Structures are given as structure tokens and as C-alpha cells.
Simulated scan of single mutants.
Amino acid sequence: MPHPAPRHPDRPWAVFLVFLRLGLTSFGGPVAHLGYFRDEFVARRGWLDDRAYADLVALCQFLPGPASSQVGMALGLGCAGFGGALAAWAGFTLPSALLLALFALGLDAWPALVPPGALHGLKVVAVAVVAQAVWGMARQLCTDAPRVVLALCAAALALALPGVWGQFAAMLLAAAIGAVCWRARVEQGVSLPVPLGRRLGAGLLGVFAVALLGLPLVLHYWPSHTLALVDAFYRTGALVFGGGHVVLPLLQAAVVPNGWVSNDTFLAGYGAAQAVPGPLFTFAAFLGAAMTTPPTGWAGAMLCLAAIFAPSFLLVAGTLPFWSRLVAYPLARGALAGANAAVVGLLLAAFCHPVWTSAILRPLDAVVATAALWALMRWRWPPWRVVLGCALVGAALG
């Protein structure tokens, strides 16, 4: 089916300006971001039609990484090539990344700038945010009893084997089970116009795989803290299925046990990340700026931010030329269904530890977290308002 002539800019700077406005105003998480994107690029600007947009969203939900950021990269790629993809990513990502890095630097330079009670309030609000994410994702991804059981088993494995490898094992086993049990063939969607050939796409996927497998080997023979940071954040970006809040357990396992960032600082930053627009993956900028050993500050923020988003760029650009064929394979769809169930389990495990165990220290904390959850789910308050409210309540109680 031929596509209507797209009406989009062909200059990276024009793409950057469009996505910068979205990066400054897109609150509400990845689902809300995809709604903003549809309003902007389908309804208002006519860059693509609804079927092509749905196909693009399906691709980005199929891949690991932040779905909304990947949709933006793909749109920028279609508009202005690789420069457009980078421009779309920068416009959508940098506002929240800069705010979170500034927050980390402020905590480091002026520890008394934010009262301890307010920091504890940020940790408590993380309980409500993660609980909402677990419930919402479970309703969407665990639609029957076998998927619920698989999610609970993934949570148990992640809690029994804390760290990255336990989470990786849970994802791998769930994907294998899904490939066997939930094979499904889907109708092929509209082919997207892609300015890349399959040879270049295969090369980019090769770079993704070489970096994922090669960085740990290089780190083994040439130990370096900078290289360890790149490896940890690249691996996180490469293995996070579901995006958004699912990044929490992998990042916590990567930076807290080895002392790069304290658990209190981690949860306070995670709470603050709910109050800024844009993708939650920009939490990496906070962690990079808050590192206890160099590179830290702005250098650490930019390094960690680039490392966590690099897999998304390589996967989107590499997979687009093959997507129409890949989506039709029943094995691929089944593996994705299993991995998605495991995602819910990993997030549930993170909710139990460290989110709940580190934040709920007294009955009053549980009351505040419950009120925050009620405000998010029943009153439909925007996350930034709930975050601000919990910080103020924490400061008052502290």
C-alpha cells in the first residue's frame, strides 16, 4: 500500500526544535509520551499515518529499551537520517537529563539544600510510583494465570539471586518458555519508509552485539572504572524490556552494591525523576553526576546517559529494515510474551527490595505511600504533583 507523501522537515535542527518542545512538556511516562507523539506527528503535522505509527510503536515495544525515545529516534531517522535521529533524541532527552544532573550536583555541593525529611519523602513516593507501574504492567502483560505464575517465578528468582545475572537469567528463561508456549503469528503491518539498507542495518546490529558481549571481556583484561560504567549502563539499556520503570532493578543492581551510588541517593533521585518531563532513562544522568568516584559531575552524567541510550539507537536503526519480516515469526512473538511477563516479575522484586525495604521505615511512611498511590490511581494526579506533595510532607514530618 503506498504511503501518502510525508510532510516533515529534512534538517536535523528543525527536528530538534520539534522534539525539544516535547521534551519540555511531556509528563506522565512512556504511555503518555506515545499519546503526545501521536497527537503531534500523526494528527497535527501529518508526518505519518495511524497505521504506520502503530507499526512503529509495535517495533519499539518489541525491542529492549525506552519505547517512547525509540519512537522519537525512528521518526527523526525517517525525517533527516542519522542526524535527525540524534536531534530527536537530544531534543526529547536533554531537558530532563539536565534537570536531574543539576539535582545530583546540588545534593553533592549543598547537602542541606534539601531537608532530610524531603529526601525521605522522595523515597516514599517511589513506593507509590513503582506499585502503580507493577499493577498497570501486570494488567497489560500478565493476562492469564500462566503468565502470572511466570512473573511470580521471575520475581522469586530475582530476589533469590540478587544482581544483574539473576535478572538476566529470569529474562532468558521466561523468553524461552514464551517461545514454546505463546507462539502467535500477527498480521503484517504497514511497511515504514526506512532510509537504510539491510546491509547497514545488519552492521548496526552487529555493533550492538559486539559491544554487549565485548565490553565485559575488555573490562576483564583492562580494568577501568570509566569502562565499568559504560559496560553497566550499556548492558542495562540493552536488556530492559518494557522501558520506563523496569530500568529501576537493573540500575540498582549495577550501581548500588558496588558502592558507586548509595541506596538512599539512588531512591531519592528515582523519586525526583518522576517530577521531570521526558523519558525515565534520563535517571542515568542523575546517577552519573552522583557517582562517588570519577568520572562524576557533568562528565559522569553525559557518559552514563550516552551509554544507556546507545543500544536503543543501534537497535532501532538496525532493526527497522527487517521489522516487517521479524514481526511475523511466531517464535519471536512468543519470546516477547515470556520476556514481558518476566519484566513484571523483575519490577515486583524491585518493589519488594530495595524500594519498600528502604523507604517504609515506620507505619506513617506506609500511610503516606498509600495516599500517594491513591492520588496517582484514583484522583489521576500528575506524577510531578504527587512527588512535590510527598517531598513537602516528608520535610514537615522530618
Rank of each mutant, 00 (worst) to 15 (best):
265 T>E: 05
229 L>E: 07
238 A>E: 12
2 P>N: 05
57 V>F: 07
269 G>R: 14
303 L>K: 10
139 R>T: 09
11 R>K: 05
219 L>T: 03
219 L>N: 08
58 A>M: 13
226 T>I: 03
71 V>D: 02
183 R>W: 06
160 A>G: 11
300 G>D: 11
144 D>V: 00
40 E>H: 06
29 G>N: 11
322 F>C: 01
347 L>D: 02
24 L>P: 09
239 L>P: 05
306 A>K: 04
364 L>P: 01
174 A>M: 15
233 F>R: 13
91 G>V: 14
348 L>D: 01
106 G>N: 11
190 V>E: 07
38 R>Q: 13
101 A>W: 04
393 V>D: 06
225 H>N: 03
45 R>C: 02
148 V>E: 00
285 A>C: 06
368 V>K: 03
241 F>G: 01
94 L>I: 14
335 A>R: 15
2 P>A: 07
311 P>Y: 00
308 I>S: 03
363 P>Y: 00
307 A>G: 09
87 A>N: 10
348 L>Q: 01
382 P>D: 00
380 R>V: 01
10 D>A: 06
299 A>E: 12
317 A>F: 09
176 A>N: 13
234 Y>Q: 06
252 Q>P: 03
8 H>C: 05
198 R>N: 11
145 A>F: 13
167 Q>M: 15
88 A>L: 13
19 F>T: 11
127 V>W: 08
44 R>V: 03
7 R>K: 11
185 R>T: 12
363 P>S: 00
33 H>A: 10
296 T>K: 12
364 L>W: 08
22 L>R: 07
181 C>P: 08
181 C>F: 09
263 N>R: 14
355 V>K: 14
43 A>E: 14
136 G>E: 09
46 G>I: 10
260 W>S: 08
155 A>E: 13
50 D>N: 07
344 V>G: 05
84 G>Y: 10
330 P>F: 02
27 F>G: 03
190 V>K: 15
7 R>M: 04
386 V>P: 08
